[in-house]
Design a protein around this nucleic acid. Sequence first.
DNA 1: TGAATTCCTACCGGGTTAGTAGTATAATGT
DNA 2: ACATTATACTACTAACCCGGTAGGAATTCA
Lengths: 143, 143
Amino acid sequence: MKISAKGRYALDLMIDVVQHGSDKCVSIKESARRLDISQKYLEQIAAQLAKGGLLRSVRGSSGGYTLTRKPHQYTAGDILRITEGSLSPISCVEVGGCEKLSECGTIDFWTGFNNVIQKYVDSVTLDDLVRTKEEKAGNNYYI
Amino acid sequence: MKISAKGRYALDLMIDVVQHGSDKCVSIKESARRLDISQKYLEQIAAQLAKGGLLRSVRGSSGGYTLTRKPHQYTAGDILRITEGSLSPISCVEVGGCEKLSECGTIDFWTGFNNVIQKYVDSVTLDDLVRTKEEKAGNNYYI
DNA sequence: TGAATTCCTACCGGGTTAGTAGTATAATGT
DNA sequence: ACATTATACTACTAACCCGGTAGGAATTCA
C-alpha cells in the first residue's frame, strides 16, 4: 500500500514548475538537478503529466514545461492519479473491477476506504502544497 | 497503491472465523473452501495472524484457529497491518523513514494522508464487518 | 549549423506477489 | 498404538512491477 517514487516525483515536479516557472518554461534538466532526481526518469514523468493535460510542453532550445492551469486548480489527487492510476486501495471498487460485487460482504468497507482516500487527496491543491513548502523554507532560516 | 490479496484474504478469514467459530475451532481447510482461496496460501496467512496475536492456533485433529479477543476488539487496521505492514502511503512518514524530514516540503501532505488512512481503518471493527456481511446476506434473499 | 530541449521506445536488475510443494510436528479419536 | 487431521516451517517459482538506464529522433532557438 505505497505511493511509488514516481508519484512523489510527480508532485515534487509540479511544485517545482510553480516555483520556477512563473513566466518562463522550466526544463527537466534544471528540475532534476534541484530535486535530485534522475533526469531521464523525470523526463518520462513529465511526459506523462503532459499527456494527461497537467503540463504543456515546449520543445526545442529554451523549451520545457509550463502549467496549463493555475496552481489552485490542480488537486494532489489530479497529479497522483496520472502516475499512480486510480489510487483506490483495491481494484474491486473500480468500474468493472469485480463481477460478484452483489455477493461481496466487505465491499462497503473497501468503498468507504476508497472514499476517504479520494476525498483527502482532492482536498489539497497544488497551491496549498507550494505554500506549505515555502512557509517551511522560511522557517528554516531560524533553525 | 493497492492492498494485496493477502490483506483481503486476512480480513475475509477473520470474518469467517467469527461466523463459524463461536464455540469450536475453525480449520483452514474449511475456510479456504468457503472463501474459495488456496488452502496452502491461507495457511500461511493464518499463521501470520496467529504470530501477530490475532488468532490462537490449536494443532492436531479437530484443531484450527479461534479468536483471541471479541470481534469488536479488533479493528480492520489491526488485521491489515499484520499482513500489509504499516499501511502508510509512503515510508517517509514511518519512524526513521527519512533522514531529511526537516527540509521536506511535502511531508505535511503525506502525514495528513497517512492520518486519514489509519483513522479510517481503525474506525471499523471486525464486529462491524461481520454485521455488514450478514445484513447483506439477508438482503440477498429478496433479490 | 549547433546546442538545447522534449519525445519515443527498448531494455534490465532487483524486489514483491501469489501462490505451490514437501515435510515435520502435534493432538485427537478409536 | 496408530491412523487421521490439523498446524508449523521452509524452500521454491513464475509472473509482474518499479526505478531506473540508454540511445536516438524530432523540434526549436540563436
